[in-house]
């Protein structure tokens, strides 16, 4: 597991649960710190789940997620 540095958080929103679970597996296998959280209502009326990551790992994670469609939101406060 990589160390969690307090550099702010980024929310990754996917098109459906399948994609969330697919992305989670990749992120977990690579050892990035992450949490699965409800989609913040400030971002979407979505009732599902999304992945919150350390912003400092965003570029690396996006590179690992390759072709998975993802919506990226940087947060000022922890959701």
């Amino acid at each position: 597991m990589r160390e969690e540095a307090n550099t702010g958080f980024t929310i990754l929103i996917f098109s459906n649960i399948h994609q969330v679970m697919h992305a989670e597996k990749i992120i977990a296998d690579k050892g990035y710190p992450y949490r699965i959280v409800p989609v913040p209502s400030s971002l979407s009326s979505e009732c599902g789940l999304c992945i919150r990551i350390e912003s400092s790992y965003l570029d690396s994670i996006l590179s690992d997620l390759q072709n998975i469609k993802v919506e990226i939101h940087t947060l000022n406060n922890e959701p």
Binding site: N16, I17, V20, I36, V37, P38, C47, G48, L49
Partner: peptide, 10 residues
Amino acid sequence: YGRAAYNRVI
């Protein structure tokens, strides 16, 4: 399956 983000659902 989906719909929420607590451990049971995950």
